[in-house]
Structure formats: structure tokens, C-alpha cells
């Protein structure tokens, strides 16, 4: 789909999660990566946000992996924000 600013804002809101660990990672991602995503990447991001928090955290933590190759680039960015200095 084509994402309007309102659609993007919806995804921004849906990046608010029930777990602080995810909020921290998504906050960095939204600040640095989100605006540069293509519509196709936003489709993938939207799908990723549908996952339950616990499963999403395990994916972002690298404790589990996915066979869905589409998710890989976004997941790599999210994982990147896990390992940069937060201070």
C-alpha cells in the first residue's frame, strides 16, 4: 500500500508496546530509521508490529529467528539499536 503521513503516524503509535525493552528499541528505530523506509518496508514493519510483545522481544533479542526473509532487513535495524550506546 501507499503510506500517507497519517498511516505512518498510525505505525508510530503501534510501536508503543507493553514491554519497556521494546519501547526503548522502537524509540531509537523511529527516530533514526523510520522516515527512510519505503512503502514495501513499511508493509513489513506493519506485519512485524502484529506479533505479540513476548515473541517480538525474542526476535529483536536474537533469541529466536524467523524464516520470513522479508523481515530480515527491518529486524537487523531493530537489533542494531539493541547494541548501540543509549546514554
Amino acid at each position: 500500500m501507499t503510506y500517507t503521513q497519517a498511516d505512518k503516524n498510525r505505525l508510530r503509535w503501534r510501536s508503543r508496546r507493553g514491554l519497556l525493552e521494546l519501547d526503548i528499541v522502537f524509540e531509537m528505530f523511529l527516530e533514526h530509521d523510520f522516515e527512510g523506509l519505503t512503502d514495501a518496508e513499511l508493509d513489513v514493519y506493519q506485519d512485524l508490529l502484529m506479533l505479540p510483545d513476548i515473541d517480538l522481544l525474542e526476535l529483536v533479542d536474537g533469541k529466536t529467528d524467523t524464516t520470513d526473509a522479508r523481515l530480515a532487513p527491518i529486524l537487523a535495524r531493530l537489533r542494531h539499536w539493541q547494541v548501540v550506546k543509549q546514554q
Binding site: 508496546r17 507493553g18 514491554l19 510483545d53
Partner: peptide, 12 residues
């Protein structure tokens, strides 16, 4: 709910 119900903080 502000967020989808299963994303409430109870999950933590």
C-alpha cells in the same frame, strides 16, 4: 484501550 489489549503492560 490505548493499545491492542494483549499489549497492555500486564504482559511484563
Amino acid at each position: 484501550s490505548k493499545v491492542f489489549p494483549t499489549r497492555s503492560h500486564t504482559v511484563a
